[in-house]
Design a protein around this nucleic acid. Structure first.
Length: 459
RNA sequence: GGCCGGGUGGCAGAGUGGCUAUGCAGAGGACUGCAAAUCCUUGUACGUCGGUUCGAUUCCGGCCUCGGCCUCCA
């Protein structure tokens, strides 16, 4: 069964056929580093991480590029507010981004280019657009001429007339057409700027992705991904710039993850339902957050709820409990992704179905009677979880996780109480044993008496 | 106004022209000093009205309804 992907360009599911199976290229729009990542930012990171893991299983060489936007007017505004130097803001925020998404088990991309390190390539591309008659200069700006591209709007399926009608912001007077967008804009001395043929200035938002994808993946490449909100204008404009500058096709498969809502409402700062990844990592382990995200199909809108996170955590608990019961068994077939998990993911990244297969594997593991069966099912469960970026940590570490700033009992204190209870049980002092269990339960610690002794976990 | 995606059992959420999704929650049972975990059994579905069909939750059309986007935004 081939890999099938829903391509926004054609609005249908298509078999994925790479340009060069020996070098599959994927570009995903990364963060603008002016503030900590919120859960909306986390969704594409997790979704495309799963795709990356899947592609690596299917092809020998995958190049995953995810940029960091470190030049942007939002960053400039932040610097002006706080007085913190721009370079400090971007460095600090980029580092925080890496920490946050690392906790969500997102693999680092192969290349993580920064916009400010590719200004030269952007200038070259803008020059090409000017030479080919797809851009013009006006009042220190360089603008892309939307009417110069006959099939502009192919991705978002908009016509140029609609763009005029839909323009709800004031159109800058130097624009020849309301939909024209900025490639380069002048910078005053207090703003970041680079010398260019058009004076000291800075790039527009869209050009960086066009320049950096070409730098690392070539003019035409396989997959371009991002959030659905980027379809227009960002990705539409990337296509316009790249196609018009090079005269050749740009990305072949466009993938977009759906929007993220919170408790049924649009996530926004004014509604007070705006969570950062960091906030959530203080409340729940990263793998619970990750599984929660993967419990709905990437293309659907996702409603983030406290209840959903709770259920996701319970689901991960269940998988780790299955593993805990076979901690002493060496897994077998550790690298063979179970066929049903693979099939689910190859069908346009059907992660909810893949997760359900993980649960079925856990059930089989729980039911396994012989060590041979246990070894086989354990290997299958772990291998299936790997492609989803789940079950990546030590089983006991998972059960010992504790929220930030909590007043949880220490591991050592819990171990002591467990030992006391074991002694009480040995002497048939069940009243004392139950008292200790109750004391631990009151502190959020669950005990499980098994054939191999007593284990505990934080709930 | 334009574009797009939805409406599935208590909840979340896949999927399918006729055959158990899965998890959580519920009920009964086994196991356990008691529990927990686990296993077994089990109840509750496919917005609405038509059409196509031997048969539709699943295809087609109308309707109702929810949500998002339309040059800040993953």
């Amino acid at each position: 069964m081939p890999l099938i992907l829903y391509n926004t360009l054609t609005r249908r599911k298509e078999p994925f056929v790479p340009l060069d199976p020996d070098r599959v290229g994927m570009y995903v729009c990364g963060p603008t580093v002016y503030d900590r990542a919120h859960i909306g930012n986390a969704r594409p990171v997790i979704v495309f991480d799963v795709l990356y893991r899947l592609l690596k299983r299917l092809y020998p060489n995958v190049v995953y590029v995810r940029n960091i936007t470190d030049v942007d007017d939002k960053i400039n505004a932040r610097a002006k507010e706080s007085g913190e130097p721009i370079s400090a803001i971007t460095a600090r925020t980029a580092q925080a981004f890496h920490e946050d998404i690392g906790a969500l088990n997102a693999l680092p991309p192969d290349v993580e280019p920064r916009a400010t390190a590719h200004i030269g390539q952007m200038i070259v591309m803008i020059q090409a657009l000017l030479e080919r008659g797809h851009a013009y200069q006006a009042e220190g700006h360089v603008l892309f001429s939307v009417p110069s591209m006959s099939d502009y709007g192919m991705l978002s399926r908009r016509t140029q007339d609609e763009l005029i009608a839909g323009a709800r912001v004031e159109v800058a007077p130097y624009k020849q057409h309301p939909a024209d967008f900025v490639l380069w804009k002048p910078s005053s001395q207090d703003l970041p700027g680079w010398d260019s043929p058009w004076g000291r200035g800075r790039p527009g938002w869209h050009i960086e992705c066009s320049a950096m994808s070409k730098e690392y993946l070539g003019i035409t490449f396989d997959i371009h991904g991002g959030g659905q909100d980027l379809v227009f204008p960002h990705h539409e404009n990337e296509i316009a710039q790249s196609v018009c500058a090079h005269g050749q096709p740009f990305a072949r498969y466009w993938l977009h993850n759906g929007y993220l809502m919170v408790e049924g409402e649009k996530m926004s700062k004014s509604l007070g339902n705006f969570f950062t990844v960091r906030d959530l990592l203080d409340q729940a382990p990263g793998e619970a957050i990750r599984l929660c995200m993967l419990s709905a199909h990437y293309h659907q809108p996702f409603d983030w709820t406290a209840e959903g996170l709770k259920q996701a955590r319970a689901a991960v608990d269940r998988l780790y409990l299955a593993l805990r019961s076979v901690a002493h068994i060496q897994p077998q077939g550790r690298d063979e992704v179970p066929i049903e998990v693979l099939a689910a993911l190859k069908d346009d990244l059907n992660t909810p179905l893949a997760v359900s297969h993980l649960h079925e594997l856990a059930t089989q593991l729980n039911k396994a009677a012989t060590d041979g069966e246990k070894a086989r099912w354990k290997g299958a469960l772990l291998a299936g979880a790997d492609v989803l970026g789940l079950l990546q940590q030590d089983v006991e570490a998972w059960f010992r996780w504790t929220p930030a700033g909590g007043t949880a009992l220490s591991d050592g204190r819990i171990d002591d109480l467990v030992q006391q209870r074991i002694a009480a049980r040995k002497s048939k002092n069940f009243a004392e044993a139950d008292r200790i269990r109750k004391e631990l339960a009151d502190n959020g610690v669950l005990l499980e008496d098994g054939p191999h002794g007593t284990s505990w976990r934080r709930g």
